[in-house]
């Protein structure tokens, strides 16, 4: 073993040791849901988080920590094996009976509502701060979020025009859904001063080429993961009907990280402003 490798091993061991000391010192928290994890880190309690779910991709520390699987298919024993004092979970987490089993095992389970509004984010920060016993830090975070949000709203309002936007959800190349009203994507498009091109559709629906042409979006919005699933940005224009829309004719495509765009976490003001600018760019 080379010296460098040994150094790496030793420092890794030390880090792990420090990490476990910190965790043992305070609360041991399992965070479930990308926004929840982001809020925990924004409150400065990232060190207490011992594990998170697969949707927790930000910040990088959260992305790299122990994963308990997808937030909607949690395993009670898996979570308990991390010996948490608190499970801080989004309302989207489940199955419901697993949360019940965790409560029965004496673990405090705090569920944060998940609606697609800035107000919901404020509420969640307050709830999380209370759960972490850092109400003061919570108020400070809410204050700064409020300021950021006010500025964002002002900047968005100053931007010209209201582009018609179509959001495409692509889990796999052959399973494409488009976002109607009542979806996170719809909320983001409206926050960014755009118009959802499929406002007369409810929820996520399968893509039909003809309906797409009828919707006539100026811009296609998609997640970075969606681009990967499709196999590259140029594949978007090969989807049925897309090339016949104004967006297709002008090759207007905006791709953003899914958790950033749709997470409704503390990065919401930044994401909103970035989306608003990019929808109108080029």
């Amino acid at each position: 073993m080379t010296r460098i490798a040994r150094c790496v091993w030793i420092s890794a061991g030390l880090l792990a040791l420090i990490g476990s000391v910190i965790a043992a010192d305070g609360q041991r928290v399992v965070a479930v849901g990308g926004a929840v994890t982001e809020i925990a880190f924004a409150l400065g309690k990232g060190g207490s988080v011992v594990a998170s779910d697969t949707t927790s991709t930000y910040p990088e520390t959260a992305a790299k920590m122990t994963k308990i699987g997808y937030m909607r298919s949690l395993a009670a024993e898996g979570v308990l094996s991390l010996r948490p004092d608190l499970v801080l979970a989004t309302a989207e987490a489940g199955p419901a009976n697993v949360l019940g089993q965790l409560r029965n095992a004496g673990v405090k389970v705090e569920v944060l509502p998940a609606t697609h509004t800035f107000e919901n984010l404020r509420d969640n920060v307050r709830l999380a701060a209370t759960a972490f016993n850092v109400e003061a830090d919570g108020s400070k975070l809410i204050g700064s979020l409020d300021r950021e949000w006010r500025d964002t709203r002002r900047d968005v309002a100053a931007l010209p025009g209201a582009p018609r936007v179509l959001f495409i959800l692509a889990h796999a190349a052959n399973r494409l859904l488009v976002a109607g009203t009542g979806t996170g994507a719809d909320a983001m498009i409206r926050y960014a001063g755009g118009v959802n091109a499929l406002a007369d559709v409810q929820g996520y629906k399968p893509l039909s080429g003809e309906a797409l042409v009828q919707a006539a979006p100026d811009v296609i919005l998609i997640t970075a993961e969606g681009i990967t699933a499709l196999g590259g940005p140029e594949k978007v224009w090969e989807l049925p009907g897309v090339s016949l829309t104004p967006a297709g004719q002008h090759q207007r495509l905006v791709a953003m990280d899914a958790q950033y765009l749709l997470g409704f976490g503390p990065r919401l003001p930044r994401a909103t402003l970035e989306l608003a600018r990019r929808l109108r760019a080029g």
Binding site: G69, A75, E77, G78, S81, L82
Partner: peptide
């Protein structure tokens, strides 16, 4: 199923 990818689980 419950040990292979612990703490997550396979269907």
């Amino acid at each position: 199923a419950r040990t292979l990818v612990a703490p997550a689980e396979l269907p």
